[in-house]
Design a protein around this nucleic acid. Structure first.
Lengths: 153, 153
DNA sequence: GTGAATAGTTCAATAGATTAACTATTTTCC
DNA sequence: GGAAAATAGTTAATCTATTGAACTATTCAC
């Protein structure tokens, strides 16, 4: 790639990734209403996918400090959406699981979010969106490597 | 597209867009250090690109309330990065411009961010990343239309 | 000229994040 | 076997970002 091409791609990427994120988050927020924040929705989504998880794991996935996770989980347990269970074998560990209410709220949230995303991705043809998501997943991998590099320094 | 394909794409999209955003923001934050938050960096970036802008415009671009912009701009003017200038023709309007210090800080931030993004996108071949950004830009357009639809309801 | 619309700010409340210091537990290894 | 290091999580103080409602000041519409 020549240098002008690269500079152009960098500018376009920085601008567009920012814009798309802001717009998509705003639409999702609009779908979720006052019942869940976007972060809380992703927390529930992650716990639902894994079945059980820990604060340390969430801190890694969300790329924030563990104390930020403690604060979010406190708000969610206060609202009766999540439960803490201490591991009896390793008593340092606390497992986070959704309550029945948490599961139900997540499912209704997920339905709304999926409808929104469906209405968007069906505006692309299958090849285009599949290629896009493949590259997106490759990008996630590259970002992980980048992170590892930085930790290694 | 058959229904299973769509459901699969939706799941992959929701997961990957979230992950990439968190990872990319964390890497950018790491580059920016303690001098600028990511939001402040994007504010400076936008003002730098447009030359001059208003709170209303930023609220639209950032998809937040105008009072959120007032708060951010207050912090940035307190730090001497941005200036407010009232329009003499329409005295309701306040123009936001970077100070000399703001310009310098932005340029050093931009350099770091561009280096980071360059090190990432050069790991793709030109066709792949160009196609990706094209689709990304198309997605931004679709999200805009979606937003307009929702406002129309 | 009055009423509606627009641009921006203020205020109180809430969510999310950081850093440093802390408790409790388990692991390492001499 | 026991001291030191590592790990999991919480607490407290502080900051940034956001919302919604109420507010000031100004301009537009008719």
């Amino acid at each position: 790639m020549d240098n002008n091409t690269i500079q152009d791609l960098i500018d376009r990427y920085v601008n567009i990734s920012f814009q798309v994120h802001k717009k998509a988050e705003a639409l999702i927020k609009n779908q979720l209403g006052n019942e869940l924040t976007n972060d809380q929705h992703y927390i529930l989504r992650y716990i639902h996918q894994t079945g059980e998880c820990t604060s340390t794991e969430l801190a890694e996935v969300f790329q924030v400090n563990k104390s930020a996770i403690t604060a979010i989980i406190n708000r969610m347990t206060d609202r009766g959406l999540i439960q803490r269970t201490r591991d009896e074998k390793d008593r340092r560990v606390v497992y986070l699981t959704p309550t029945q209410e948490g599961v139900e709220l997540f499912q209704s949230a997920q339905e709304k979010v999926h409808q929104l995303v469906e209405s968007i991705i069906t505006q692309f043809d299958e090849t285009e969106i599949t290629t896009f998501i493949n590259t997106y997943e490759k990008l996630a991998q590259i970002l992980d490597n980048k992170k590892q590099e930085e930790l290694g320094e």
